[in-house]
């Protein structure tokens, strides 16, 4: 694997995470449980689609095969999407959406903090810009986890179920392979294992305050980084790609 190939793959993984999660959040648009949250979820979606756009633009440049950001976002096959499984999970109720966001935000902030120091200037710049948004996302999702966890009996039970359900996707956030190894050596990527314990401590602190807990069983899934997804992703892509696939090669 060349550095160029590794960098392209690395960028796709980051971009797909944000696009797919942004897409999921956009499904809430107009249906949020409270007007203020309808706006908040749409805003999160907008930030994530924006981050995805910058990452795809850079990925397209690195690949240098004449594809642009939209080709990458809309015209790949299911196996070619490299997002983690967590972000493609369905919205469920508002509590599940929040827990999914919470687990992701805590990872993203630690990742971007380190990528800001990347030797790759473009990655450092995207991380520096995105982290400002992620700080808000993190505050928002953490506050809701606490509110719902320590709210009523019903909200506690519901959100605990989501924590239990989604915790099996946590390890995959830290998945690394030859792509990462090559780029870590170059000082482009960061070693996520270095902040795993910080992540665990950070989410535990919030969950404790929320009177919630992670399940004891160690049942972890992965596959997303290699394009092996859950059954949910295909439907998401069918919607995402609908116009581009139905009317190929047109400008919109």
């Amino acid at each position: 694997m060349t550095k160029q190939e590794a960098l392209f793959e690395y960028l796709l993984r980051r971009a797909d995470d944000t696009l797919i999660l942004g897409h999921r959040l956009s499904e809430w648009c107009g249906h949020g449980p409270i007007l203020e949250e309808d706006i908040a979820l749409t805003n999160l979606a907008l930030d994530l689609v924006g981050q995805a756009t910058e990452l795809y633009q850079y990925a397209a440049k690195v690949e240098d095969k004449g594809r642009d950001e939209d080709d990458l976002a809309f015209l790949r096959l299911e196996r070619e999407y490299k997002n983690v499984l967590l972000v493609e999970q369905t919205n469920g109720d508002f509590g599940k959406t929040i827990v999914r966001q919470f687990l992701f935000d805590h990872f993203q902030i630690l990742l971007y903090e380190r990528l800001m120091e990347s030797k790759d200037e473009q990655i450092a710049a995207i991380a520096a810009k995105s982290i400002k948004e992620v700080k808000y996302h993190l505050k928002h999702s953490s506050e809701w986890v606490i509110r719902l966890g320590d709210g009523t009996e019903e909200s506690h039970n519901r959100v605990q179920e989501s924590v239990t359900d989604l915790s099996r996707f946590i390890d995959e956030l830290f998945y690394q392979d030859e792509v990462d190894e090559l780029l870590i050596k170059e000082g482009v990527a960061c070693d996520t294992s270095e902040f795993r314990s910080t992540y665990d401590a950070n989410i535990k602190a919030v969950l404790d305050e929320a009177t919630l807990s992670l399940p004891k069983e160690k049942w972890q899934l992965d596959g997303g980084r290699k394009g092996i997804h859950s059954e949910h992703l295909g439907y998401l892509l069918a919607e995402l790609q609908y116009v581009q696939r139905t009317h190929p090669g047109m400008e919109w």
Partner: peptide
């Protein structure tokens, strides 16, 4: 149509617009 917007720019603009309406 927000989940079926044809490209990234349209998707972002539509999201921003709908967010405005809610605002």
């Amino acid at each position: 149509w927000v989940t079926r917007a044809p490209n990234l720019r349209r998707k972002a603009v539509l999201l921003a617009k709908i967010q405005d309406e809610a605002g």
